[in-house]
Each structure stands twice: as structure tokens, then as C-alpha cells.
């Protein structure tokens, strides 16, 4: 299934795969390393529901815009739009040099 949005997901730099999940949990589109990955979709929906209950600032009307799960070399970036959850697995390539 291709749509303008999934096409632009393909063009995200260093992407390894993506998922588009309906808010009821059904996987609408998937590709790359996340192709048909229902397990990851389930874990991420669970995290999204938890994240939407977190109060980010004392001002209550400040919903989260992006949820990232960062591992050593790759990361999942997640966002919500129009009753769908968009997930992209990307290589983790921070722009700044490491000076530990």
C-alpha cells in the first residue's frame, strides 16, 4: 500500500523500516525490518498509551509530540497523527561528536 505519507516515510534518512498502526492496534502499513512485525506494533501501542498519560509539564495541555526509544546503534521514533501511530526504525547517528 503506498500513499504520500508512506512514500515520505521511505525517504526518512537512515530508516531501517516503518510501521503505521491504526489506533485500534491494527497494522496498516509496514516495511523493511518492521515488515509485518505485529509484536513490535503491540509493544509500541502499549508504550504510546502509557506515554499519552504522562504529564510532561505542570501545564497540563502539553501532549507529547514524539516518543523515541534509543539503543546503542538504532532507535525507534514514534508519533501520532490523525488516529494513527507512525513508527520508524532508524540508525542512531547523532550529529555531535562523542566526548565522554
Amino acid at each position: 500500500m503506498t500513499s504520500p505519507v508512506t512514500q515520505s516515510l521511505e525517504r526518512i534518512p537512515d530508516q531501517l523500516g516503518y510501521l503505521v498502526i491504526h489506533e485500534d492496534g491494527a497494522v496498516i502499513a509496514s516495511s523493511g525490518e518492521l515488515e509485518n512485525d505485529e509484536k513490535t506494533a503491540g509493544i509500541i501501542m502499549n508504550m504510546v498509551h502509557m506515554a499519552s498519560r504522562v504529564q510532561l509539564s505542570p501545564d497540563r495541555n502539553d501532549p507529547f509530540k514524539r516518543l523515541s526509544v534509543v539503543f546503542d546503534t538504532y532507535m525507534f521514533v514514534i508519533t501520532i497523527s490523525n488516529h494513527k501511530v507512525y513508527v520508524c526504525k532508524r540508525k542512531y547517528l547523532p550529529s555531535e561528536p562523542i566526548n565522554a
Partner: peptide
């Protein structure tokens, strides 16, 4: 989300302000 569940990722929640 990792095949190795011993690995702990950093989870980051971003909003416009925080």
C-alpha cells in the same frame, strides 16, 4: 523492543516545551 532484553534503551518523550 530489543532481541536482547538485558539491553536498556533510553526512552525519550518530547513535547513542544519539555
Amino acid at each position: 523492543l530489543s532481541s536482547d532484553e538485558q539491553k536498556c534503551p533510553v526512552v525519550c518523550l518530547e513535547s513542544d516545551t519539555c
